[in-house]
């Protein structure tokens, strides 16, 4: 590659990276501005050092007697929800993928297609009837109502099934020779050998859970059951009275956890995502 062309490639890539980093940097700087300046449309390219306290204010509430609601309970709820969804989906799909891949039983294909059907029914297309079922179960405004309806996952099941089909027959024969039953085989051999898949899926599902908007909006009508994503949209609320610096600070706080998870587990995540679709 000639030097000139190499330089051009780098310049364009840097431009591409800036297209994503720069706007988020502006959000960070805007959070530290005072509310008057941001409302006059003044753009900050650098953060104001004395404005950094906004993050503490937004986290723990400010104003007389905490007039502005603190966002840390929303962050905690989002975190708990994302963790529960990721862990729950992984357990449910490992078990069902194991059943489909390692056993032959009546109606196996029917079960497989029933699971597959969940792919075709995202929550956005069945908003009201799902809400009615959850209301009927008395799960409105509860943590269970937030998490349980999102636990079934065809994608995760298909991914694990694919991984399990690739487990060498010799491994299983050896395990059976050693007297390991199906349950021992799952916990002692299959799950440890699938650790990389589980890690990758954890990232994908954590991000999925953290970023949910429509379902938490429907199922949690009580302010104490608000996730950070729902809370931010409420903060934008009525245009005229929006405190934009607080909105930007809350957005930064909401952005950080899933981005950190992706960055920390990047290697497994990329491999798992692209392998999973194969």
């Amino acid at each position: 590659m000639t030097g000139g062309r190499g330089l051009l490639v780098h310049a364009m890539l840097a431009l591409g990276a800036a297209l994503f980093l720069l706007p988020v940097w502006l959000v960070f700087c805007a959070a530290t501005q005072d509310v008057g300046a941001i409302n006059r449309g003044e753009i900050a390219l650098l953060p104001r050092r004395d404005g950094l306290s906004i993050f503490g204010d937004v986290l723990f509430g400010s104003g007389p007697a905490g007039a502005d609601r603190p966002v840390w309970p929303m962050l905690a709820l989002s975190f708990a929800m994302a963790l529960a969804i990721a862990a729950g989906k992984i357990v449910v799909s490992v078990l069902s993928a194991y059943a489909v891949a390692f056993f032959r039983f009546p109606l196996r294909m029917v079960c497989f297609w029933v699971i597959f059907a969940t792919l075709m029914l995202p929550v956005e297309v069945r908003i009201i009837p799902t809400f009615e079922v959850v209301a009927g179960l008395g799960l409105i405004n509860s943590f269970g109502g937030l998490v349980v309806p999102l636990l079934a996952s065809a994608t995760a099941t298909l991914l694990f099934r694919q991984a399990f089909l690739a487990v060498p027959d010799e491994l299983m024969e050896a395990a059976r020779m050693d007297g390991a039953g199906p349950w021992r085989f799952l916990t002692d051999i299959l799950i440890p050998t699938s650790a990389a898949n589980i890690a990758a899926l954890f990232v994908i599902l954590f991000v999925y859970g953290w970023n949910q908007y429509l379902w938490p909006l429907l199922v949690a009508t009580h302010p104490a059951q608000e996730t950070i994503v729902v809370g931010i949209v409420k903060m934008i609320g009525t245009e005229s009275a929006t405190e934009w610096n607080r909105v930007m600070a809350a957005a930064m706080l909401a952005l950080l956890p899933p981005v950190l998870v992706v960055l920390a587990m990047q290697r497994w995540f990329v491999k798992g995502l692209t392998d999973g679709e194969k």
Binding site: V92, C111, I115, V148, P149, T157
Partner: peptide, 10 residues
């Protein structure tokens, strides 16, 4: 668990 969740919520 998977079948129950699918039947109930899907």
């Amino acid at each position: 668990p998977q079948l129950l969740l699918t039947a109930l919520f899907f």
